[in-house]
């Protein structure tokens, strides 16, 4: 299959998040950026699907500046065949979706992966938007996928359970944990990644529909109140009378 995997880079999960003094942007000093963990699952599953059938290609695409290239190379080292970088700051989900949809529209991909959400903005918007822009069916938060001929069988999380759905290619899915274990690049992969094609494309248009007015750090907690482990009646009473949650 010809598969496209959408990738974004995000602050490492251990990052302590702070904002610039004007509260307009993330303070990136000392922050290490990684491939969004859900996108890594998409890359891995795309590779696995093609390895099972012994053919096809996996293209990764990102919208971002030149600073994303180390992570794009990592995706290539995992085994993707080629990469596309659309050279623009990914500040608005619709803008990102439109850039990717513009690229994908002429490429006849059988399958497109996104992550369930990026762990920075947690929006989970881009997959659905790309699907709508390309008029494709899409299945969100998937935990398993097989494709036989042009029929995909996909398991997804639903509220209070899981279900299995069928959908014909081409379609879009967004990866949820449990889909697979992320692949770790081996030395050969890292070496070959250096020479794999990475195409840089200029952004097309600048239709942005949202912007961050300001960021805020969470309010600090008042401090924990310790309760004697032998006095759970006191905890219950505090939860009822003080916190009012019982």
């Amino acid at each position: 299959m010809k598969i496209l995997v959408c990738v974004s880079q995000v602050p490492d999960t251990t990052t302590k998040i702070t904002f610039t003094p004007d509260n307009k942007s993330l303070n990136t000093a000392g922050v290490q950026f990684i491939i969004n963990p859900y996108d890594e699952l998409g890359i891995t599953k795309a590779l696995e699907l093609n390895e099972q059938t012994g053919g096809g290609t996996v293209t990764v695409i990102t919208v971002g500046g030149a600073d994303t290239e180390p992570n794009i190379r990592k995706a290539l080292a995992m085994g993707a065949d080629d990469a596309v970088r659309i050279d623009a700051e990914p500040t608005d989900a619709f803008f990102v979706a439109q850039q990717i949809a513009n690229y994908a529209a002429s490429q006849n991909f059988d399958l497109i992966f996104t992550g369930r959400e990026s762990i920075d903005y947690n929006g989970g918007q881009v997959g659905g938007m790309i699907a709508e822009l390309l008029n494709l069916p899409h299945v969100n938060v998937i935990t398993a996928i097989t494709v036989s001929g042009n029929t995909g069988s996909v398991e997804r999380d639903i509220d209070g359970g899981r279900e299995v759905v069928e959908v014909a290619t081409p379609f879009l899915v967004s990866a949820q944990k449990d889909l697979c274990e992320p692949r770790i690049p081996n030395m050969r992969g890292i070496m070959t990644a250096r020479t794999k094609p990475l195409q840089v494309i200029a952004a097309n248009g600048s239709d942005k529909r949202t912007e961050v007015a300001q960021f805020q750090a969470p309010a600090p907690k008042a401090g924990v109140k310790f309760i004697d482990p032998n006095n759970m009646d006191e905890l219950v009473s505090l939860l009822h009378n003080e916190a009012k949650v019982l």
Partner: peptide, 22 residues
């Protein structure tokens, strides 16, 4: 919800709308 997460971005595109999730 899971349903809303899947549906809302598509609705926003169809309506030429600005979208904020969650």
């Amino acid at each position: 919800t899971y349903t809303g997460k899947a549906v809302a971005p598509r609705v926003a595109v169809r309506l030429n709308a600005a979208f904020a999730p969650g």
